[in-house]
Design a protein around this nucleic acid. Sequence first.
DNA 1: CGTTACATTGAGGTTTCTCAAGCTGAGTGG
DNA 2: CCACTCAGCTTGAGAAACCTCAATGTAACG
Lengths: 244, 244
Amino acid sequence: MANRFIQKLQGFADLTEEAVAALTAATHRPQDFKPRQDLIREGDRPGPVFVVLEGWAIRYKALPSGSRQIMAFLMPGDACDLNIGMLAEMDHSIQTVSPSKIVKIAGETMNGLMMTHPSVARAMYVAQLVDEGTLRAWIVSLGRRGSAERVAHLLLELYVRGVRIGIAHDDEVELPLSQVVLADALGMTPVHINRVLQELRQSGAIELQRGLLRILDAAKLTRISGFDDNYLHRKLRAYRSSNI
Amino acid sequence: MANRFIQKLQGFADLTEEAVAALTAATHRPQDFKPRQDLIREGDRPGPVFVVLEGWAIRYKALPSGSRQIMAFLMPGDACDLNIGMLAEMDHSIQTVSPSKIVKIAGETMNGLMMTHPSVARAMYVAQLVDEGTLRAWIVSLGRRGSAERVAHLLLELYVRGVRIGIAHDDEVELPLSQVVLADALGMTPVHINRVLQELRQSGAIELQRGLLRILDAAKLTRISGFDDNYLHRKLRAYRSSNI
DNA sequence: CGTTACATTGAGGTTTCTCAAGCTGAGTGG
DNA sequence: CCACTCAGCTTGAGAAACCTCAATGTAACG
């Protein structure tokens, strides 16, 4: 059975059998990582492409003050930028947040794969575009949304992504993120996150404990988040109808 | 003489003569735009690639509440994502902020250019990577920096970009951005921006009036901004040593 | 059964926002 | 050449959101 990375790419483009075989070969021996391990750090020379097969990782930037800002969550199936190798240095770090299985694909291998199998290249580009869209949404959240909106929006985003990659069941998704991690992602303090989560729980919109998020009232959560009603739907449509 | 777009690409990769000629042909007839004109809007089907030859534009997202968040400034020479056309809909809008000369390059034309001239493709990819880095820096600012830091950081970023594309003279750069625009970019209110700018002026770090920014004390501004001392330098190095 | 990481609570302080008014300078029609 | 207008900038005061510090609670784990 194809791994999550391949499954995800198949959602973005029709992969030939050979492409799938090549991808399988390139990702067949993942490496285990414990939580809080840096895969690569700001300032490092970019090396291989990382592909998360199981577990969660984050992209983050550490600040001189000691705090950090998380810029993206990498869920099973996600890869870090394929062509980051073009730059001389990493401008951010990547770290696991939960026990993970991760594959390193050498830059040349990846390039070769994309050259030989245009469908792979296409799928990777679409994946990157989607990531960029998420990055832009992140900016909007940080800049123009209140704390409750922000939290609700992130939870929804993660839930939607969980559904898409099949790690969500009904209204539940595993979310191995501490409140500190959420705070670093949302640009707020852990204390404040905590209070916001309580509000959300008391409003009956969600349940969240021990790494398990349950959406109790999706409509309410959507309303709180200021999720443009069409956003979710539009987003899904956008993915599917990519036809280049 | 090559236009700013071509100049910028030349900074990212060695373009062949034919490539320059093809780019020149593709960008030789720009169109004039007044300020505050949308080039393309959220929800639209992506069409041509836009290239800003003169003037400034912004990427932004409008929120239901009526406010908006700016996610990027497009300065002369900048192009919007080359492969945005792969997605079904724009997830953000692009608008001019000052009188501008802008070229539209049809998607197929652009693709053809990149196929025929690999050096163009390479330069465009590097440009995109750089943009992504800027996007990530934006997130850090919004999430983890105080207002003075944020403003200082943006001004420095814009100044550095101005220097790179040659629209800065000594310590001055034209900045046709109202305080409202700055507020929309930095996730704060115009009122607060105003007060922060006054602080920066009174500290002797900058002068800013009638669309002209002057850096009076770069060291001080850098300190205020929390600009990682190496960041600027590293960034420049990263651009230059891109050698793939 | 202590240790440890994470979550929760309270109180007070700061930053930033909101609202509302006044100011300035460039352009415009008389 | 003078009102007049309008967009953008500035100022003040009170309110709200969010942070800081510091303590306490709680579940998992060796």
